[in-house]
Design a protein around this nucleic acid. Sequence first.
DNA 1: CGGTCTTTCCCCCACATGGGGGAAGAAAAA
DNA 2: TTTTTCTTCCCCCATGTGGGGGAAAGACCG
Lengths: 215, 215
Amino acid sequence: MIERIRVVLVDDHHVVRQGLRTYLESFPDLEVVGESSSGEEVLRHIEQWLPDVVVMDLLMPGGIDGVETIRRIRQVTTHTQIIALTSYTDDARVIAVLRAGAVGYVRKDAAPDVLLASIRAAAHGQSLFDPPVVGAVVQELSRPDVALSEREQEVLRQLALGHTNREIAEAMMVSPETVKTHVGNILAKLQLTHRTQAVIYALKCGLISLDDIEL
Amino acid sequence: MIERIRVVLVDDHHVVRQGLRTYLESFPDLEVVGESSSGEEVLRHIEQWLPDVVVMDLLMPGGIDGVETIRRIRQVTTHTQIIALTSYTDDARVIAVLRAGAVGYVRKDAAPDVLLASIRAAAHGQSLFDPPVVGAVVQELSRPDVALSEREQEVLRQLALGHTNREIAEAMMVSPETVKTHVGNILAKLQLTHRTQAVIYALKCGLISLDDIEL
DNA sequence: CGGTCTTTCCCCCACATGGGGGAAGAAAAA
DNA sequence: TTTTTCTTCCCCCATGTGGGGGAAAGACCG
């Protein structure tokens, strides 16, 4: 008998995890050797589980996020291959995930056998991509890489909190004039005209989460 | 042998659906008699499947949303009980879902046996709520119910698209003065001070989705 | 029928915002 | 070393925005 592919599931949704485990274990060549609900947890057990493939949801509230988890797993072991399983086709996220060292990116609305094929491919060192994901990658690569500076990102985060220039200035301990400059530069770099659009941009590219914003 | 509980799964994520089906069917008293990826689809088949319980994800891109689907299912049949299965603890959404006629609200990060217990409870006409959900309900009931008028909601949607008052006026075929009035009333009703906060509100309460917004 | 709500539009005014420019020090890159 | 970038702050000014008021027409409800 051939050795089974050792799989670890990472998802903060217990229901989803249980469902995936049951589904994957219905195939004789797969073995779910562990599951965890957070990035920290999987890092603690990774050397004990020694999985061939980690299937991980990117969205995990609290603690380190999915991308960072991928990066750290890759530092610990080169054997384990990682597949991101997520709801988003967020172009920027796809790039970030692949740069972090994942070999697969499967959307949750994909057919289950796509995940299955991705796991088997990953276990053999291959990489399988869904057409929609490929499209996202291409679209992302063709987009000019606008790099906001540290300070600009901080201002953008503050913008997304619904703060005025004055409030941002107070929060960042600088003069309102400085904030104005930053906001202007942000809008110019992102080719936007209004701060509301900047807020939407910040949310879309995951610079800040809706959950982080209190009204 | 007792009759098995007829379950229908609704989720736009095929992988999640498959996982849930495999999991639920591992219990002898449950039978998954159908699954679909959209609200429209489940409505087309509901009278054919005649399920005891519908387990539905609220977030379904495109077409009618989860809440509307619940409402329509309840119009078609009074027998079928509906359980919302979602990632959000969004207070407003919980209320909306229950008002629409759902008897259960299970978060995806809940233990799988919570879903199981909810399904069994729903099949017997009971209603089972998780502590976090109950908390959300109580919190929501204690909040003043701010009702935006049709026109105000439309303006708020336009706001969330990052439009200026002038642009909104043109899109809605009214004068900028009218838009100003609406924006002012919206801010007053929601007790906000800036339009950026209104955008965040619109996104948080699901009036509009990030995916609907192009920059 | 009178009251409330909605929708439309107008007035005023203070302040915030966006776009243009410049300047100076620090830090990093060429 | 020179150059560039980042960060800080200032000027100006046109426009957008938020808060206050009012008014008129239609709908809906008791």
